[in-house]
Simulated scan of single mutants.
Amino acid sequence: MVDVHGTTADGFEPVRAAFADNFALRGERGAAVTVYRDGTKVVDLYAGTRDADPGDEPWRHGTAQVVRSATKGVAAAVLLLLHQRGQVDLDAPVGTYWPEFKAAGKERVLVRHLLAHRAGLPVLDTPLTPAEAVDGVSGPRALAAQAPAWEPGTEHGYHAQTYSWLLGELVLRVTGRTLGTWVAEEIAGPLGLDLWIGLPDAERDRVGRIADVEAPPAPASAGLRVRAKQSVTDAYRDPESLTRRAFAAIDPHPDENDPAYRAGELPASAGIATSDALARFYASLTGVVDGGHRLFAPATLTLARTEESAGPDRVLMVGTRFGLGYMLHGGACPLLGPGSFGHPGRGGSLAFADPESGISFGYVTNGMQKNVTADPRAQALVRAVAKSLAG
């Protein structure tokens, strides 16, 4: 049995029980979960070890972890806030802000297509090395030259890695600041979040080491092939599939514990945060935190969780639902209710908000599991939150 540390408000005891069960029944090594309700923290728990392997240093209050694709929800907020401020038109062609992007048949790719995974750019003909992925130049240059894999706007497919360079370059062109800098100055700083897209050297000791899985082998060719009835398993095994190539846009697979990688700004996959930072971030999207901080105006909140993409996903090979930058409640990503929006991270992390119940949720872990969107540990915690609300 692991010792669970932290606090739960009256009525939220089921979350503590589910969190403990994750260690006893579901292979958890080290993790934290935080829940806010109507801007007030009601759950703040942590347990286990901060490092997955070796695992001897205890997880402490404020331990942060790489949250992989849960970072996408933070990155999406930057574009939506720029739209809220009148600096970005969601229905404008991306080439309006980034002229080089118009090449190779991308003149009609809209800003909203990037956020809703409809741009047709989940893969690169030539994958980037880990060093190129974080240099701030190679990724945008490659995508500016890349031809779409389908007619932009007509279908959707998860932009697992390329989302980093698409959104990062757009923010840079509009604001003159990198996306990580914008987050630090406009979101994390004002809200007091332990959240970084580009980890500062001074914060390295705050972050635990994550477990990893074997990387997929490099694609055999640059050809695109999607079989009409290809299974998810087959797609991951097929070196020419969109699925395999989307997740191998950085090749070889980067060492996610490498300080150089963590310092790079990859808003698709390499954000670092505490569970409290993620939950507090989502609380600020849907309501007021600490009596004064709210990020999204009501109209922007509606944009974030209005369905833009739904149905068969050309990359994930299952039915997915996306708003503008956020996964929506559904079979591939069960959240708290029909109005919930957020983003999971491969390996288990999950962050979301449910405006109807006033809940915002953040979960981070160092124990890698292979589920892409619906990790059983995170789902057990979501069900426990629902049980707590039901009384």
Results as ranks from 00 to 15, higher is better:
23 F>S: 05
266 L>Q: 12
46 Y>M: 03
110 L>M: 12
56 D>M: 01
357 S>W: 10
337 G>Y: 07
72 K>T: 11
311 G>D: 13
310 A>V: 14
193 L>H: 02
141 R>E: 12
80 L>N: 01
333 C>V: 15
21 D>L: 03
46 Y>L: 02
320 T>S: 12
235 A>D: 05
149 A>Y: 01
328 L>W: 03
343 H>W: 06
276 D>P: 05
155 E>Y: 06
198 G>R: 06
306 T>R: 13
201 D>I: 05
307 E>L: 13
206 R>M: 09
39 G>K: 13
114 L>E: 00
199 L>D: 05
320 T>R: 09
128 L>D: 01
68 R>Y: 14
310 A>D: 10
104 A>L: 04
43 V>K: 02
286 T>P: 00
118 R>L: 00
248 A>M: 13
335 L>W: 07
217 P>R: 12
245 R>L: 06
125 D>G: 13
185 E>V: 10
39 G>M: 07
119 A>G: 07
104 A>G: 09
151 E>R: 14
22 N>E: 11
19 F>D: 01
21 D>T: 04
351 A>P: 06
20 A>M: 04
376 P>D: 12
256 E>L: 15
389 L>W: 09
170 L>C: 10
258 D>L: 03
336 L>V: 08
388 S>P: 06
311 G>H: 13
202 A>D: 15
20 A>L: 07
46 Y>F: 14
16 R>H: 10
137 V>Q: 07
48 G>N: 03
238 D>Q: 12
359 I>C: 06
6 G>W: 13
211 A>W: 14
377 R>V: 03
126 T>W: 06
279 A>P: 12
64 A>S: 08
255 D>S: 04
231 S>W: 13
90 L>H: 02
229 K>V: 09
119 A>V: 02
372 V>M: 14
391 G>K: 05
300 T>Y: 13
3 D>R: 15
191 L>S: 02
315 V>M: 12
251 D>G: 03
107 E>K: 14
208 G>W: 09
38 D>Q: 15
335 L>T: 08
346 R>S: 07
285 L>M: 13
213 V>N: 03
355 P>T: 14
273 A>F: 05
253 H>L: 09
301 L>C: 08
359 I>M: 08
207 V>Y: 09
129 T>K: 08
6 G>I: 05
197 I>M: 14
252 P>S: 07
382 V>A: 01
252 P>N: 06
262 R>I: 04
253 H>A: 14
206 R>G: 05
145 A>I: 07
375 D>H: 05
338 P>S: 11
380 A>E: 08
263 A>E: 08
313 D>C: 12
303 L>N: 05
200 P>F: 01
